[in-house]
């Protein structure tokens, strides 16, 4: 590679990162390793925010603990870095107490699926109207590379030094069976597809779950002699098969075997608040004011009067 001629770079190009308005630049550099996949997922998320154009003041991002758990801290949004495994119930409280908010949970597989697995399945069952982005790197990164609930069989980790013998979760299947409204899986290579899925999720009412298969270039790659981050991206490139609406039962990930990606579920179900309003309206009639419903014609009239 030729050295860059610094004099050639225009001032506006070095002073402003194109995503700066959505990042806490005073916290950069971030803590993630070179070739880690989390940064790519964040890039896709930021691009999706730009495309979906929600009112950014009304977007809250919640993370748990772990490498991906740090995402909330870098986003220039109302951002909450909570406890290990509990990002989803925190987000549930946030969303239910103010349904005007668009609430995104951005966290890792260990956080969301292992220690937080109970919350994940119940949020999907309730069809809680939140977006969950789950970066799945098959390993506990922050604590130094331990086996997890998503680690493929035979993969080596610091606490599965002879190869993992527990079957991993098939996350799209789990989410589908629990009732999620939207389920997709991409790898860190599929930035454009991933971005589109996040946009979809933003526009979706109900529980959306997006799994992002991402390289842990430092720990998972080293324990399993997978080469560099680039080698892992090559594996994604060669072994990913896009199959929209695939049968979720076929989506298990085996060690270094093909990964089926795509948008698997996109369906309509009443959200928690929809179901609550429906039930209470049926029982209480006019005595119940539907909760979290944007003001209807009556308030339009009022606005008209005020104007």
């Amino acid at each position: 590679m030729n050295p860059v001629d610094v004099s050639e770079i225009k001032k506006e190009n070095i002073e402003y990162h194109p995503m700066e308005h959505l990042l806490r630049m005073d916290r950069i550099p971030h803590i993630w390793c070179p070739a880690c996949g989390i940064g790519t997922a964040v890039t896709a998320f930021v691009s999706a925010l730009e495309k979906a154009k929600p009112d950014l003041d009304k977007v809250s991002i919640v993370s748990g603990i772990g490498c991906t758990g740090r995402v909330a801290g870098y986003m220039k949004l109302d951002s909450f870095h909570t406890t290990h495994g509990r990002a989803i119930p925190f987000a549930t409280g946030l969303k239910l107490a103010n349904p005007d908010l668009k609430v995104v949970v951005f966290s890792g597989d260990g956080d969301l699926v292992a220690i937080g697995g109970n919350h994940l399945i119940h949020a999907a069952r309730r069809n809680m109207d939140i977006v969950v982005i789950c970066v799945n790197n098959f390993i506990y990164g922050m604590t130094g590379g331990q086996v997890g609930a998503t680690t493929p069989e035979t993969a080596r980790c610091s606490t599965s030094p002879y190869g993992n013998f527990e079957p991993p979760f098939n996350l799209p299947l789990l989410m589908e069976s629990c009732g999620a409204s939207y389920v997709a899986r991409w790898t860190a290579l599929h930035i454009r597809r991933l971005t589109d899925s996040i946009v979809d999720a933003f526009n979706k009412r109900g529980f959306s779950f997006i799994e992002v298969i991402a390289p842990c270039s430092t720990l998972y790659a080293r324990w399993n002699r997978l080469g560099s981050g680039l080698d892992i991206m090559k594996y994604y490139h060669e072994q990913s098969i896009t199959r929209h609406n695939a049968d979720p039962r076929d989506l298990k990930i085996d060690f270094q075997k093909p990964i089926i990606v795509g948008k698997f579920i996109d369906r309509e179900r009443p959200t928690f608040i929809d179901a609550m309003n429906q039930r209470f309206s049926a029982v209480f009639g006019d005595r119940y004011t539907p909760y979290g419903v944007p003001a209807g014609p009556r308030s339009d009239e009022k606005e008209g009067v005020n104007a």
Binding site: T82, P89, T92, A97, N118
Partner: peptide
């Protein structure tokens, strides 16, 4: 909620609204 861990953090989320 599904357990006390969830209940005790959901109220914290709610308080921030």
């Amino acid at each position: 909620m599904e357990d006390e861990l969830a209940s005790s953090i959901a109220i914290i989320g709610a308080a921030w609204t």
